[in-house]
């Protein structure tokens, strides 16, 4: 059994291991980093700590967020560094049984398949398990 914190991007449901998630936050104003990779969302002030955010929509090469909607933050720890993943909406923490796991479905885009470990077939929809380390590997 694996516990995943879920969130949505476009109409996909993604999940990351609960143990990797430090916290989730509503939209935070952030400072744009010019010249950085487009997947870098910006820098935000998390209780005095400067946290770099990764815009998962851009990272997964999904269509940009429609104007007006503000991304939520899934704050994760990667190699001792705190990073934030910008997502559309935060979902529940779900417990999935490992026998529901299968390799990334072919229907996904190449980029999506590159950044997910695999998928869990839930009753009503597919839960894509994000490979955090790869997802934040933006330079």
């Amino acid at each position: 059994m694996t516990q995943l914190a879920t969130f949505t991007l476009a109409d996909h449901l993604f999940g990351v291991e609960v143990s990797r998630v430090q916290e989730v936050l509503r939209y935070q104003p952030s400072t744009k980093v010019y010249l950085a990779s487009p997947a870098i969302g910006g820098l935000m002030n998390l209780r005095g700590q400067v946290v770099t955010s990764v815009d998962l929509r851009r990272r997964l090469e999904l269509e940009p967020r429609s104007d007006g909607s503000e991304p939520m933050n899934v704050v994760v720890r990667v190699d001792g560094e705190v990073l934030s993943l910008l997502v559309d909406a935060i979902g529940d923490v779900v417990t999935v049984s490992d026998d529901l796991f299968e390799s990334p479905p072919e229907t996904l885009s190449a980029k999506e398949r590159e950044l997910i470990v695999g998928a869990y077939k839930l009753e009503d929809r597919l839960l894509l398990a994000l490979d955090i380390d790869r997802a934040v590997d933006v330079t």
Partner: peptide, 20 residues
């Protein structure tokens, strides 16, 4: 480390109003 490669920034700071 994801931003170091850009080169034109030497660091970040938090200003008086809390923005980075």
């Amino acid at each position: 480390s994801r931003l170091k490669g850009i080169g034109v920034y030497s660091g970040a700071t938090i200003l008086g109003d809390g923005t980075v």
